[in-house]
Design a protein around this nucleic acid. Structure first.
Length: 591
RNA sequence: GGGGUCGUAGUUCAGUCGGUUAGAACGCCGGCCUGUCACGCCGGAGGUCGCGAGUUCGAGCCUCGUCGGCCCCGCCA
């Protein structure tokens, strides 16, 4: 760069700077060579500025500019000029001015990039990831990283102002049972032993409460070795928090404050507080999901009383065997074609539904449906009334075990929402989901599993049920759902050692195993643990929604592919045999 | 582990019923051009049709396998 010092970035200059001598540095976004005058759009993280090479004013520099190509890195010195009459570009922040160049230094050349860096063309994601440093030069992606930075800063500043301490916890820690598959790290100095990368800093943050830190937070990487999705990466970032001497209401209030601050500081949006609340049971019944998208209706409606004695054997049998029959009224959708209905039937099939019964309501209210003939006039009238079915409506029925009905109709509801254009990315609909069950029965392992995690406190009034009917016990866990995505979850924790021992026992964790794996926690609870609870937000998912993207990969600088690989570094990779033997690992695969 | 979908020029894509020399746009290279801003005009180069078998007189197209991207199910306390 020689003696040149950058004076402005590429989005800084306006009519107010006319006449100034400036130095800009950046990349060649586009070159418009008229043979005579040459225009270069010089780009950096902030924006772009048009620079002009005029042969009449500086022939030497103009000749040099002839050879410039896309993505070359330049330093230019020149004077800020007003653009000629009628040449102002209102689409650019810097559109009123241009730089008349007196000195050009080529700081680096570039090969022709493997894909265009303007936003015009969608490029395959594999190529983008292989050249992620080029992909991140593109304005949309750069904006996402800037937005994410603002979000982290907003969260930190809010939590700092509310008495939280940012404390780091170990990345090399021990594997604990329950939960996702661990990423393991072999210990060289302890042959045959392994660290695990944390699925979350759960136990450490509880220990920090026992340590009297009172309010802790951390923006921290967590690791889960499970299969990937658009909103799931093997390493992801949590905004992790824990508070002492609190109950649910305290946490809700503080978190609503944080989320409000976050949305204001990033996109200038003001959420309506307090956020609505919904029990798990209500969420499942109305939306078939524990993370309901409350931006639109199309709710599930129960037909138990209407069908339990009805003439349609399929529905009657389902109810008799403990299943359920629910329906969705797709208002005004009677115009759906046969193909639409076939598509939707196939769609719910992947969620376990064996079929999808439908009814079109014709003018005058009669049913057009393959199943209409199985019902009496009175039965049809009763269902029409319950579902508020009007001419032009389309009814969908789900009849199966509760799990299948919830999944199939819940997903059908979302699909209908998408098809009908009810999914508005500018709307942010929050809802707290509470009163989750503490445990659920795992058929494979033939034991109860923690729905949240084994340290979640049971609801006070359900404590007695732990011994008699564990599946009925509600927990003090809560999730925050936003537009149908679970963006955060947490709970009030168990702080009494005898309660923790009881829950372990209910989970089928023996006294011995508990001592082996959780002795440090039980000891800590024995040594003056305060009542405490916390929550963690998925920062990637939050950013995905705030940035209006469909995948968290777009808000992560260097994400992995669905097969958990990195096309840029080619990780994971093989390692030298010596590295393995040092770790006391003896591979049995061929190199 | 399973289902779906995609893979053709540097990029994004088209490619009919299996049939002559695989096309377009953008990009790239060269030339012309003094007010463009996705500059314009003229010319040119550029292809292991992901890979491997098979069917066929003949395969970008059909079959099987395989690799990879994406979406989903399972999985994700």
């Amino acid at each position: 760069m020689g003696s040149l010092k950058r004076t402005h970035h590429c989005n800084a200059l306006s009519a107010a700077n006319i006449g100034q001598e400036v130095t800009l540095m950046g990349w060649v976004l586009r070159r418009r060579d008229h043979g005579g005058v040459i225009f270069i759009d010089l780009r950096d993280r902030w924006g772009l500025t048009q620079v002009v090479f005029n042969p009449e004013i500086n022939p030497e520099v103009h000749a040099k500019a002839h050879g410039l190509r896309n993505e070359w890195v330049l330093a230019i010195r020149g004077r800020v000029e007003a653009r000629p009459e009628g040449m102002v570009n209102p689409k650019l922040a810097t559109g009123a001015i241009e730089i008349l160049v007196s000195e050009l230094r080529i700081l680096n050349q570039s090969q022709t990039p493997p894909f265009p860096l303007d936003e015009e063309v969608e490029v395959s994601e594999n190529l983008r990831l292989k050249y992620r440093y080029l992909d991140l030069r593109r304005p949309g992606m750069a904006d996402n990283l800037v937005l994410r930075h603002k979000a982290s800063q907003a969260i930190r500043s809010f939590l700092n102002d509310n008495g939280f301490l940012e404390i780091e916890t170990p990345v090399l820690t021990r594997s604990t049972p329950e939960g996702a598959r661990d990423y393991l790290v072999p210990s060289r100095v302890n042959p045959g032993k392994f660290y695990a990368l944390p699925q979350s800093p759960q136990l450490f943050k509880q220990l920090l409460m026992v340590a009297g830190m009172d309010r802790y937070y951390q923006i921290v990487k967590c690791f889960r070795d499970e299969d990937l999705r658009a909103d799931r990466q093997p390493e992801f970032t949590q905004v992790d928090m824990e508070l002492s001497f609190v109950e649910e209401e305290d946490i809700f209030a503080i978190m609503e404050g944080m989320i409000t601050h976050l949305f204001r500081e990033t996109i200038g949006y003001k959420p309506v507080t307090p956020f609505p609340r919904m029990t798990y049971a209500e969420a499942m019944n109305r939306y078939g999901s524990d993370k309901p998208d409350t931006r639109f209706g199309l709710e599930l409606i129960d037909l138990f009383t209407e069908v339990r004695n009805c003439g349609f054997k399929v529905f009657r049998d389902v109810v008799e065997k403990g299943g359920m029959v629910k329906a969705i009224n797709a208002k005004g959708c009677a115009t759906f074609s046969r193909k639409d209905l076939d598509d939707l039937t196939a769609y719910v099939g992947q969620f376990g539904a064996k079929g999808l019964a439908w009814v079109k309501i014709k003018e005058g209210g009669e049913w057009q449906s393959p199943i209409a003939k199985f019902f009496t006039d009175e039965e049809r009238a009763a269902m029409t009334r319950t579902l508020d079915a009007q001419p032009g409506d389309l009814l969908f029925f789900g009849a199966d075990s509760p799990a299948v009905v919830y999944a199939a109709l819940g997903e059908l509801r979302l699909e209908l929402g998408r098809r009908l254009g009810f999914i508005d990315k500018k709307t942010f609909s929050f809802v707290w989901v509470t009163d989750f069950p503490l445990l659920e029965w795992d058929h494979e392992q033939r034991r109860h599993m923690a729905v949240h995690h084994p340290f979640t406190a049971p609801a006070e009034e359900d404590m007695a049920l732990l011994a008699t009917d564990p599946g009925k016990v509600r927990s003090r866990a809560y999730d925050l759902a936003l537009n149908g995505t679970e963006i955060g979850g947490g709970s009030i924790r168990i702080h009494q050692p005898q309660v923790q021992r009881t829950v372990f026992a209910t989970l089928g964790i023996s006294e011995e195993e508990a001592r082996d794996k959780f002795d440090f926690l039980l000891k800590a609870l024995d040594l003056g643990a305060p009542p405490h609870g916390g929550i963690a937000f998925g920062l990637d998912r939050l950013m995905m929604i705030i940035a209006g993207r469909d995948t968290i990969r777009d808000v992560i600088a260097f994400p992995k592919t669905q097969k958990a690989t990195c096309p840029l570094t080619d990780a994971p990779s093989t390692v030298a045999r010596k590295q393995l033997t040092e770790l006391s690992l003896r591979p049995d695969w061929k190199e």
